[in-house]
Design a protein around this nucleic acid. Structure first.
Lengths: 113, 113
DNA sequence: TATTAATATGCGAATATAGTAATATACTGT
DNA sequence: ACAGTATATTACTATATTCGCATATTAATA
């Protein structure tokens, strides 16, 4: 497989490699949402969410539809949602290590005894 | 879902977000390989490959086994390979756009006519 | 114990990404 | 045309990633 095709895949993964963008896709997995609805659900700055949406748009992971004042987003290909679902499984399998990492970050005092 | 868990997923995606690391995982999907074998197959600098292996190790996507002089790597959880397989499907579905992007990058003269 | 082979690590430069604040654009209703 | 709402873009700063080079580590062998 030529490197350019691997670059394509890597670019998709790169687009998924941010907690906010994962959150966006998880919300969109339930169906179409407007940018404003996403901003509200995420509780984040408008500009910031808009930039993350731009990243997802650039890689064509989401598509948008303008309706008057608003812009509605959907996940273009459900395969992306399958990937996220697989990652959920992966996460559950390795929950222990994951929590270990989190513990180590959040309560370093406990790890030292 | 708490953001910390999304961060965990994002970190995994981040680890996958490089063509060299994708290549490494694709080679390892066929079975265990030594670092040296990977370096040879990839045709890249030893230090560079080793660094990419370190990224995959840090996220526990691969595990290593020392055998004397050599270090053998394997993909720890086949779910990761399923994710890559899904991405292959995704890629095939969107091959046209992907090739469009590549064309645009590689032969800008054609796009301007 | 010195030498070589296999692999990993540290460092610096170049580039990419993320967040914030400010501004721009597009549409709606008056 | 004007004001207001929804969304996108730009500019800037801080931080992270990647690569090449040099060096360190570990094991095998002379």
């Amino acid at each position: 497989m030529p490197d350019s095709l691997r670059q394509f895949k890597a670019d998709i993964f790169q687009a998924l490699a941010h907690p906010t963008r994962i959150a966006i896709l998880e919300y969109l997995s339930q169906g179409e949402l407007s940018a404003g609805a996403l901003i509200e659900k995420l509780g984040m700055e408008q500009a910031n969410v808009s930039q993350h949406l731009a990243v997802l748009r650039a890689k064509q992971i989401v598509v948008n539809r303008k309706a008057g004042n608003q812009v509605f987003y959907t996940v273009r290909d459900p395969i992306i949602l399958q990937v996220l679902a697989l990652m959920r499984t992966y996460f559950q399998t390795h929950l222990k290590e994951a929590l270990g990492m989190l513990d180590a970050m959040e309560s370093p005092a406990e790890t030292a005894r």
